[in-house]
């Protein structure tokens, strides 16, 4: 995979070229023009990203401090942190947080293990490689909502093949079984993505090292634990970080499969329901900010705690 080989390698000529320029205090005309061009080229992207994320988040912080119900537009009032108090003392928030945490932990853990197996199958296979990869890309690419309907009908009693196979059961009507179906749908959809990311990491593990260990009498399992895993740690951590944050915002599968009924609603479902059923912008914004804080905490844990290299930081150093 040539892309991966190229990533991270800095052509020697560039390094030498950069050094004297940095020390020069007075920027040359060319360097100044380069700087202006750099900013000009980034400006449109930066403006759009700020307009769509930073500004609404700032606005949400402001809204979250107000009493603001769309049904009572005359009754807007600054109320400080009472919206946060209302959310954090509500059982709905904690139930949604629990459901989200269960789904995230189980689906990420299982799809990591299955993704690793998938990566090894894709890495080892010599014939039918294209077929396997193409097949694996379909769950990744398929519209989540379309796949979710498939799962829903498959588990509908007297209509679905899976329900029929399991004694005509109706798992979507009970809390934990429904969460199980949601996790199954998530795992099916996201394992290929992890598998492909890990496959790229796997192709970076030198074949010689494996052979040398084999000669020294290491078993396949020992080679996997002592050589493959440590060398793949960066790829695994990046895949984990992205999958965890992605799973944490789960919405589509739950919306279609259960609509959040029977205590299966995630944090995203809670935020959506609050806006469109309760029409409460103040509470909704407080939920938004609290979810945002959760995501920041998770990302911080991964990057500082586990030493996940934030993807792209090497680009910045150049």
């Amino acid at each position: 995979m040539s892309v991966n080989e190229a990533v991270g390698t800095v052509p020697a000529s560039e390094v030498i070229e950069e050094a004297p320029d940095r020390r020069r205090k007075q920027l040359s005309e060319g360097a100044r023009a380069e700087r202006r061009l750099g900013w000009a080229l980034c400006a449109p992207a930066v403006i759009v990203m700020i307009a769509v994320t930073a500004y609404p988040v700032g606005y949400a912080i402001w809204l979250s401090l107000e009493r603001y119900n769309l049904e009572l537009p005359q009754d807007i009032k600054f109320v400080g942190f009472s919206n946060y108090a209302a959310v954090l003392s509500s059982p709905y928030w904690w139930q949604a947080l629990k459901v989200t945490a269960i789904i995230t932990v189980i689906s990420v853990a299982v799809s990591l293990v299955l993704g690793m197996l998938l990566a090894m199958v894709m890495h080892r296979t010599l014939f039918g490689r294209g077929t396997v990869r193409t097949a694996a890309l379909i769950p990744y690419g398929i519209v989540t909502v379309a796949a979710a309907y498939g799962w829903q009908y498959a588990w509908t009693p007297s209509q679905g093949y899976l329900s029929a196979a399991f004694n005509n059961s109706a798992p979507l009507t009970s809390e934990y079984k429904a969460i199980g179906v949601i996790i199954l749908a998530e795992i099916w959809k996201t394992t290929p993505f992890i598998g492909l990311l890990l496959l790229a990491g796997l192709s970076l593990v030198p074949e010689d090292l494996q052979k040398a260990a084999k000669v020294d009498g290491a078993s396949a399992w020992q080679r996997f634990i002592k050589i493959t895993l440590p060398l793949m740690k960066p790829a695994i951590l990046v895949a984990l970080l992205f999958r965890t944050l992605d799973s944490f915002r789960i919405f589509d599968n739950i919306f279609i499969l259960t609509g959040g009924n029977n205590g299966t609603g995630s944090l995203s479902i809670l935020g959506y329901d609050n806006l469109f059923n309760a029409l409460n912008l103040g509470i909704g914004s407080a939920i938004s900010i609290l979810i945002f804080i959760c995501v920041v905490v998770i990302a911080f844990m991964f990057i500082k705690g586990f030493g996940t290299a934030a993807p792209g930081t090497d680009i910045g150093k150049r």
């Binding site: 949400a60 944090l267 938004s288 995501v295």
Partner: peptide
Amino acid sequence: MFPAISLVTPM
């Protein structure tokens, strides 16, 4: 990494 739901209410 942004949670899209955080944008829904303000947007």
